[in-house]
Amino acid sequence: MTGYTATVTVRLKAGVLDPEAETTKRALQRLDFDVEKVRRSDRFQVEFEADSPTDAEERATEMTERLLANPTIHDFDVEVDQQ
């Protein structure tokens, strides 16, 4: 078993309204920044032991599908690095 760090990025699917990002955009504009679009995502770093990079990626993907993301509204990316 080897230690891995999975970096999981969870973001809203295209077309799903993101009111917090919209509010943030307006706040940036109030600060006189010329901003057209803000997108927000959550990034998780999960450390765990796995047999191989493939095993690590599969497990991180399962963690994301079951808890970290909600498939109804989210897309996600998983990247795995050996520690």
């Binding site: 799903v16 009111p19 917090e20 509010t23 909600n70 109804t72 509204i73």
Partner: peptide, 17 residues
């Protein structure tokens, strides 16, 4: 209920934030 998959869909941040 939606997070547990008992019911379909998701409830997320209000449009007004």
């Amino acid at each position: 209920g939606c997070e547990a998959g008992l019911t379909p869909g998701a409830f997320t941040v209000n449009e007004s934030a």
